[in-house]
Amino acid sequence: MLDVDSVAHSGGWQRFHAAEKACFGLGCLGVALLAPAPGGGLVVAVAVLLLITIGPARVAPRLLLRLGLPALGSVAVSAIVVLVDWGAGPPSAAGSRVEAAAALTGRSTGAVACLLFLGTTIPIGQWAAGSRAVGIPDPIVEVGLAIHRTIVVGAGLVGSLDRAARARLGYRDARTALRTAGLVGGGLLGRLYDRDVRHDRAVAARRGTGEPPVARIGPPSPVRLSAAVMGVLVVALASWTVVR
């Protein structure tokens, strides 16, 4: 199981309805993108990250950093791309684009925080059930679930292969690391295919149709849903107040 799934399944947000969490998370995402940049997005990021770490989920900050680091790295690279003048001649810093880079960073950081909130509070089963409940067609939900399953299996396999390679000093220096990366990558494709074939056989053996079993969920509590909407409004108000 991925760390993000593990946290979503075991955290204190389990007792809230998926619709309440989605309403809050997606609402904050909207605020992060629409609030005046860069301050608005950063305020949303701080508010949401505080909620994840000291709220019912109690996600350890180090784990949260690990989960968000790839996305934040992508944000940093994007900001650098905006900041640098890639025109004719050697690349040089473009002072006039600092504001645009800051806006990009602020909004993206807020958005990453909101996606982390959604990921660490809503387990995949609730996502699927919720998506069906709001009328998203079954094939789309199933494709999403299949992609998720492939990522989970792939991540598990990469983790196991990587650990086994480290046990035999596979990353001792650059040369061995390159060789190990090739072996792990090559091994992963074959193993993923093998797992998929075995999974298909197991599903067929149980007369499965290929449709994954998904829990059904009832309607959310109107009071809590209203509280989620209020939460979004509070975050939005804070964002505009701090920035203005």
């Binding site: 196991s160 292969l161 650990r163 086994a164 046990a167 000093l169 596979g170 001792r172 072996l183």
Partner: peptide, 23 residues
């Protein structure tokens, strides 16, 4: 490297051989 040296002196055979066999 120290840590790598440790792994050379303490060897682990994993439960699932498929995880371990890379080549």
């Amino acid at each position: 490297a120290e840590r790598s040296g440790w792994r050379g002196r303490v060897g682990l055979v994993f439960q699932d051989s498929d995880d371990q066999l890379l080549a």
